[in-house]
């Protein structure tokens, strides 16, 4: 039986204007929806104090990683054993560690490896995950079978345990004992990417599968849009929101992962300075010199928390169902 009322109007009066029903114009709805999703989200976010606080903290920590010299004039490798284990003072704001290094400069310079690993890992995981997830979801068939099997295999390895065993084997490798700051960072990040991309790929594959059969995509397809145009112009913008949320949260997750691996002896090794090595290296002095452990923890935890809170806020803002 026909449904005169709802064909004439729409179930959701607030969103879609009367003239542009879905499927009429394959170009229009995609951009309109995507644009309104993100601009709605932005409006929501700039009024969210938790999100603003998290982002401000992330910006502060990022500036430490990019321009440490802006925050301290001291060199973290400039140590004098005569001044070991000094309590915080005007000269050494965070005191000095057992080797007599200025601990404040350690804390500042420690941001770079931690954040770089998280950033490289997240970028790699997102790129690989999005591309492979989209290929699997879009083409189906043997492409999907192959990619899905690989995803299943990697998923069967508990994430940190997998990273631990690979890095544990690599522990003696020269790569992790370089004089420069970036080779160990790169090694840890690559291991995290190898094991981490499957999460994003799964989400992406699911989103693409559901987006593939939406009316506007079918409409574009029937108008002869090419595969790449379909994927990048029509499907990607609508499937990317959950990936952005996951990426934000995983930035925090990877910072925590790096510190954990380092703590277990399978991440960065001294003389590299990261928040992880600062915690791991000073744990034996925790009882007498609490600040040596509490300071890096006090930077690590809020950073992880900020990314997770920002990701949560983003999720709430991007999910129209919750509004």
């Amino acid at each position: 039986m026909s449904d005169p009322v709802t064909t004439a109007t729409s179930d959701n009066p607030a969103v879609i204007p009367v003239q542009a029903g879905p499927g009429v114009n394959p170009q229009g709805p995609t951009q309109e929806r995507a644009a309104s999703l993100w601009s709605d989200a932005r409006r929501e976010l700039i009024r969210n104090p938790i999100f603003l606080a998290s982002v401000s903290f992330i910006l502060i920590v990022s500036s430490m990683a990019i321009l440490p010299s802006m925050w301290t004039s001291k060199n973290p490798r400039d140590c004098d054993i005569k001044f070991a284990k000094l309590s915080p003072s005007a000269e050494h704001w965070f005191g000095t560690n057992v080797l007599g290094c200025d601990y404040y400069s350690h804390a500042i310079y420690g941001a770079r490896p931690s954040l770089s690993i998280a950033l490289i890992a997240t970028t790699g995981v997102t790129l690989i995950g999005v591309v492979l997830g989209m290929l699997a979801g879009f083409f189906g068939g043997w492409v999907d079978t192959l990619i899905s099997r690989i995803i299943d295999m990697i998923y069967s390895l508990p994430f940190l345990l997998g990273a631990l065993v690979i890095l544990g084997v690599l522990r003696q490798s020269d790569l992790l004992h370089s004089d420069q700051w970036w080779p160990p960072v790169l090694v840890v990040a690559i291991v995290l990417i190898i094991l981490g991309w499957v999460g994003v790929a799964r989400i992406m594959r699911g989103s693409v599968l559901s987006a593939k059969n939406l009316d506007y995509v079918l409409a574009a397809k029937s108008l002869g849009a090419s595969n790449s145009r379909l994927m990048f112009r029509h499907i990607l913008p609508n499937a990317i929101a959950p990936v952005v949320v996951v990426a934000t949260i995983s930035l925090g997750g990877y910072i925590g992962a790096e510190a954990t691996l380092t703590f277990l002896g399978a991440g960065l090794q001294p003389p590299a300075v990261s928040w992880g090595t600062m915690i791991a290296g000073n744990i034996d002095y925790f009882n007498e010199y609490k600040y040596l452990v509490l300071i890096p923890c006090g930077l690590l935890v809020p950073t992880v928390l900020s990314f997770i809170l920002a990701g949560d806020a983003l999720r709430d803002a991007l999910d129209p169902k919750l509004r």
Binding site: G252, T260, I279, V293, C297, L305, L309
Partner: peptide, 15 residues
């Protein structure tokens, strides 16, 4: 729960 999730287990443990 967000707090607990953001604190890496080893930090929680040593604290």
């Amino acid at each position: 729960t967000v707090m607990v999730i953001s604190v890496p287990v080893f930090v929680l443990g040593i604290l």
